[in-house]
Design a binder for these strands. Structure first.
Lengths: 222, 222
DNA sequence: CTACGGTGTGGACCGGCGGTCCGCTTGGTG
DNA sequence: CACCAAGCGGACCGCCGGTCCACACCGTAG
């Protein structure tokens, strides 16, 4: 397993592939985008495509990981999204960040969800987010089953679920957000819940689709 | 479009296909079961298979619909699962029924979830269950966003989610059930929630996998 | 019981998929 | 510049879901 420097053409092709894949996946209906198309759009051969990304799933994961980087960076920034601050607020800010991320990347995430059993829950980014949710829930709602609740909250922001609620059921993103926050609010302190949008919606993350950016993919001599 | 009686051999083959498919799907990893295999296992040609079930998704749906019949029948029985009775109890009994059904048929439901975008939410049985959940939630928790909550509760019993919690996270079915009930409990009346299993677990449905049963498919020589 | 029409059958066949292979090209190095 | 491994690309593979059609067999009319 060579981890060393990548040849210039290889790095260039990796970029081309990731960019082309991201664009095609965003266009629509990820299921219908074939590896052939991606290779062609990226201007590389199929062999090259599969040399960089061993299979379909790992390509999708790579595209998504890059998108997730923005969110992960913010997690290490200042509160409320970053560590520290009041537990309940930290939890709600986190949920907002997650929902915004999912919303911005929903078609891609749907692709990931479809790409194999359990990859949605089992992939590293998800595990990180669930763990973080669990931590914040445990802080905000001691005495409850934080682990279970974290999984449910994370399930509640699954791309296909959110997409279905929005597209097929006509729920606004704000309504979904409000519901999510209500779900996360400790039973003890929950107000009557005004069924509208009482939540602050603070940080909002704004990962958006992002123009890919590269920022030194091959650090090499790190 | 002939809707009348099916020829004897056609009916026999339909049964054979449904039975074989159900068995293969239950064996493991639904994604890996091909239509070819099903046809072979059922002892029919591929043409026959596709004549009865226009595509993969509709075959899966047909198998599942048959399984769901048991649950739907109980819904029209006596309370708490059937109509009438105290709202909160009706809601919890319903969730139990749903969870048990999902548990008993999880591999099949996972197949359905994978068979296309939104088919999990959009198929008739799901819509029915979600609507029923909404009704019971609205009765048990007036003033809240019952529609959203119903979808979240239904999402919380998605086969892959439950399966992941059980298999990968080692949560017992009882723990999952307890979490589900806590989620459904109105904020106002929720006790400290003992993180263990305080729920009654009343009706339990017991749909199980059911040995398919045929009930006189090929009368012929009566 | 026989003749017959059309529904039902089955497996060869199809286009395209994800993935592999390998002879040729090209970037990096001394 | 010479060298050669890393990289490349597209022909190729096995198999998938799905289609097609010559033929079989069911059910009925006589």
């Amino acid at each position: 397993m060579k981890v060393g420097p990548e040849r210039a053409d290889a790095a260039r092709n990796r970029e081309a592939i990731l960019t082309a894949a991201a664009e095609l996946f965003d266009r629509a209906d990820v299921e219908t985008v074939s590896m052939n198309e991606i290779a062609e759009a990226a201007g590389v051969g199929k062999g090259t495509l599969f040399r960089r990304f061993s299979d379909r799933g790992s390509l999708i994961e790579a595209v998504l990981t890059r998108r997730a980087a923005a969110l992960l960076r913010q997690e290490q920034g200042p509160p409320p999204l970053g560590p520290g601050g009041e537990p309940a607020e930290a939890l709600h800010a986190y949920l907002d960040g997650l929902l915004d991320f999912v919303w911005a990347n929903r078609s891609l995430i749907r692709a990931l969800e479809q790409s194999g059993p359990n990859v949605f829950y089992a992939n590293p980014a998800s595990r990180h987010w669930i763990a973080e949710l669990t931590r914040r829930l445990a802080a905000a709602r001691p005495g409850e089953d934080a682990d279970y609740l974290a999984h449910i909250l994370y399930t509640a922001v699954r791309a296909d679920a959110v997409d279905y609620l929005y597209t097929a059921r006509g729920m606004s993103l704000d309504r979904i957000r409000a519901g999510l926050h209500a779900l996360a609010t400790p039973a003890a302190t929950v107000p009557p819940v005004a069924a509208t949008v009482p939540v602050p919606v603070p940080v909002a993350v704004a990962v958006a689709v992002a123009p890919a950016v590269t920022t030194a993919v091959v650090p090499r001599g790190g």
